[in-house]
Amino acid sequence: MKTVKELDWTDRVLELEVGPVAHGGHCVARHEGRVVFVRHALPGERVLAVVVEDGGGGFCRADVVAVREAAPGRVQPPCAWARAGGCGGCDFQHADPAVTRELKAAVLAEQLRRLAGIERAVEVEELPGGALGWRHRVRLAVDELGRPGLRAHRSHDVLPIADCPIAPAGVLPPVLEHRFTPGAEVEVVVDADGAVHVGDGPAVQRAAGREWLLSPGVFWQVHPALADALAAVVAEWAAAPAGGTAWDLYGGVGLFASVLAGLVGPDGEVVVVESAARAVADGRAALADLPQVGWRTGRVEHVLPGLTGRPDVVVADPPRRGLGRELVDALCAREPERVVHVACDPAALARDVALFEARGYRLAELRAFDAFPMTHHFESVALLMP
Rank of each mutant, 00 (worst) to 15 (best):
Ala227Phe: 06
Lys5Ala: 15
Cys27Ser: 14
His223Val: 09
Val28Thr: 12
Lys2Val: 08
Val264Arg: 11
Ala354Phe: 03
Val65Asn: 02
Leu290Glu: 13
Glu301His: 07
Ala350Glu: 03
Ser380Pro: 01
Pro216Glu: 04
Ala84Trp: 03
Gly254Lys: 03
Val18Trp: 03
Val28Gln: 13
Ala41Leu: 04
His26Asp: 12
Arg320Glu: 05
Leu255His: 11
Gln292Ile: 04
Phe372Val: 04
Pro311Cys: 08
Glu274Tyr: 04
Val35His: 07
Glu269Ser: 13
Asp8Lys: 05
Leu349Asn: 11
Met374Val: 00
Ala364Asp: 14
Leu14Asn: 10
Val171Lys: 10
Thr308Glu: 15
Ala207Val: 08
Val35Met: 09
Trp237Thr: 10
Glu185Trp: 03
Gln76Pro: 02
His31Tyr: 14
Leu132Ser: 14
Arg101His: 12
Glu123Cys: 00
Gly324Thr: 01
Phe356Lys: 06
Val13Lys: 04
Ala279Tyr: 08
His26Ala: 13
Arg210Met: 12
His23Glu: 14
Val196Gln: 02
Pro241Met: 06
Gly360Ala: 05
Val4Ser: 11
Trp212Arg: 02
Gly306Tyr: 01
Val142Glu: 07
Lys2Glu: 14
Glu102Ser: 13
Leu140Ala: 06
Pro318Gly: 05
Pro160Arg: 12
Gly268Cys: 11
Cys164Met: 05
Gln93Gly: 00
Val339Phe: 04
Gly58Gln: 12
Val188Ile: 06
Val264Cys: 15
Gly194Leu: 03
Pro202Thr: 03
Glu15Asn: 01
Leu112Trp: 06
Asp96Asn: 03
Asp191Tyr: 03
Ala70Gln: 04
Glu185Phe: 06
Leu145Ser: 13
Ser275Ala: 15
Asp267Thr: 15
Ala286Ile: 12
Gly209Val: 02
Gln221Asn: 11
Glu119Asp: 15
Gln205Asn: 00
Arg351Thr: 09
Ala22Thr: 05
Phe219Arg: 04
Ala109Tyr: 09
Ala195Val: 15
Pro216Gly: 09
Arg30Pro: 01
Ala106Gly: 13
Arg299Phe: 05
Pro346Asp: 09
Arg151Asn: 11
Pro318Asn: 10
Val175Glu: 08
Asp200Trp: 06
Val234Trp: 10
Phe92Gln: 07
His31Asn: 04
Val271Ser: 08
Ala167Thr: 10
Gly86Ile: 10
Val18Pro: 10
Ala207Asn: 08
Ala285Thr: 14
Met385Gly: 01
Ser275Met: 06
Asp345Val: 00
Val342Thr: 06
Arg325Leu: 13
Arg338Asp: 02
Cys332Ser: 14
Arg120Phe: 00
Leu48Ala: 12
Pro291Thr: 10
Val52Ile: 13
Gly55Ile: 00
Ala231Asp: 12
Ala316Asn: 09
Ala169Thr: 09
Ala238Arg: 05
Phe369Ala: 02
Glu69Asn: 01
Phe219Tyr: 15
Arg147Cys: 10
Gly57Ser: 14
Val353His: 02
Pro241Ser: 07
Ala246Asp: 02
Cys90Met: 06
